[in-house]
Amino acid sequence: MKAPPFIYHRPETLDDALALLAEHGDEAKVLAGGQSLIPLMALRMGRPAHVVDLGAIDGLAEITEADGAVSLGPLVRHEQANRSDVIAQHAPLVAQTMPHVAHRAIRTQGTVLGSIAHGDPAAEMPAVVIATGATLTATSSSGERTIAAAEFFEGYLDTALRSDEILTDVTFPAWPSTAVSSVVEVARRHGDYALVGVVTTLDITDDIVTDAALAYFGAASTAIRVSAAEQSLIGSSPSREAFDAAATIVAAELAPPADIHGSTAYRKHLAGVLTTRGLTAAVDSIGVPA
């Protein structure tokens, strides 16, 4: 359980970090909080020849708000986000998610953007990114580009980030005052990776659902939305019947991979159960009868 040898870089500016990635590309990995990369290296699932540690670069842990949209820099730790007034006020779904992310001793080091860049399909943050339609900014020595949430997660632990790029920003769009949300999951132990979980958002105006997002984690090779179930909710009143109908669609559409902790059939069942539970929890937060 020890990492293989690597060349360690500790640049003091983002430009220096980007230059190192431009030079070493596929051979290099970016180290932020290390809560995913270090165990991967210890398990020898990853053997980067170069590790570029962002830890000595100032100014990367900013949380900012503009016109209701909330942006996080690459060294914002989960625990910092968990305690941020800006996030509590303007990005309530992110605030709701943080207590589900691992344990405090991991949240104190692990970064929100690191979790997104790692792209673990069982992690919460990728599902929050696709549920909210967040915008991701990737920076390389040749400039920066923005990537839409729907384009970002390409496969198991695989994202649209190129090997010479650093994920430098995630911006969550302004949270509508009419929106409600929930994060529910089933895990073997509180704080562990979920067997299945769902991030739910509903926009409700005059008791009619005008927009919905159901983003599942632990249910496919990436975080995944089930648009047929979302569409089934739009235009109707939130009700137990409508939620159960959406759950039936979800359980039929998803085919979660099996592992030692749960079969495909069990995870399909959980996805359905959690759909109703998540929708109910979301509307419960504003007292809409379900």
């Binding site: 290390g34 830890g55 405090r104």
Partner: peptide, 21 residues
């Protein structure tokens, strides 16, 4: 392996010594 790093609980097995600078 939990220790306190600047007062915050942290997994010392998930941190390179170099990051403790």
């Amino acid at each position: 392996c939990t220790v306190l790093v600047d007062g915050q609980p942290s997994r010392s097995c998930l941190m390179l010594a170099a990051q403790a600078e």
